[in-house]
């Protein structure tokens, strides 16, 4: 492919970078990224990847835009309340960058459709807000050998890591099992500072772009390294970032040498107790 004049201008600040260049920008334009969840994390991820010119963005979300979403889900606007989130996100992305093709999936990400949706995407971003989905995404990505970025936020805290199945530790290497329902509250129970979603989401977007550019190992000549084998944990109150390092667990139930999880299942844990009662 050749860059058009408009693309050269649009992406000039990328092209100037030693680590991107025209070749790197073409890689971005040809890449396909799946974002699961068009909420607090998915919104900044989708906005930045769209602006960066990711050629195909798949967006999975079953919900419609709610007024309570707008405090942090910056891809949706007030007139979008009531619209399916995937549609609202698609409209915003189209306005930002006509280069981006958006594929929408207005459904929950479930065991039965997971592998079909993952399809031929190059990279997956976990922007979900509940443990069953996070474990499912991890297991599905490991089985389908899809690299992905895990992200999670709560109150003033956030955490993220990048997983290259087979190469680096997966989410289950770190968190073997999900916590029992109710032990860890979700955003809608406990609240979240909107900007924390932005911080975490943009980190995930940066990881996505680095992966697309081919910086998936420490030996690349530009010294970019992905957030693999380390969990980045941030707290916006003290505004401190720290890293917890770990290794691939050889006994991991999904990516270990003898995996005990061999097929996908929808895990039992209610995402939000309060919402159900409401």
């Amino acid at each position: 492919m050749e860059l058009t004049q408009e693309q050269i201008v649009r992406y000039s600040r990328h092209i100037m970078l030693k680590e991107v260049g025209g070749e790197g920008q073409k890689k971005i334009l040809q890449s396909k990224v799946l974002i699961i969840g068009a909420g607090g994390l998915g919104a900044p991820v989708a906005l930045y990847l769209a602006a960066a010119g990711v050629g195909t963005l798949g967006i999975v979300d079953a919900d419609v835009v709610d007024l309570t979403n707008l405090q942090r889900q910056v891809i949706h606007a007030t007139p979008d309340v009531g619209k399916p989130k995937v549609q609202s996100a698609q409209e915003t992305i189209n306005q930002i960058n006509p280069d981006v093709k958006v594929i929408t999936y207005q459904t929950l990400f479930k065991a039965e459709n997971a592998l079909a949706i993952l399809g031929d995407y190059d990279f997956v971003v976990d922007g979900t807000d509940n443990f069953p989905a996070k474990f499912l995404i991890n297991d599905a990505c490991v089985m389908a050998n899809k690299p992905f970025s895990h992200g999670g936020i709560l109150r003033f805290d956030g955490q993220t890591m990048t997983v290259l199945p087979g190469k680096s530790a997966c989410y289950r290497c770190v968190f073997n099992e999900m916590p029992p329902a109710g032990v860890v509250p979700t955003c809608s129970q406990a609240g979240v500072l909107g900007a924390v979603a932005g911080i975490l989401g943009t980190i995930q977007a940066a990881e996505t772009l680095k992966y697309i550019l081919g910086y998936d190992d420490a030996g690349n000549r530009h010294a970019c390294s992905l957030l693999t084998d380390r969990l980045l944990i941030m707290n916006a109150k003290s505004m401190q970032f720290r890293e917890v390092r770990f290794k691939k667990n050889p006994d991991c139930p999904v990516c270990g040498a003898h995996p005990s999880i061999n097929r996908l299942a929808d895990y039992e844990q209610k995402a939000c107790e309060l919402k159900r009662e409401a």
Partner: peptide, 13 residues
């Protein structure tokens, strides 16, 4: 500047 550099860089690639 800096578009001249952007275009020159695309040429050198």
């Amino acid at each position: 500047c800096p578009m001249n550099f952007v275009l020159a860089k695309l040429e050198i690639e």
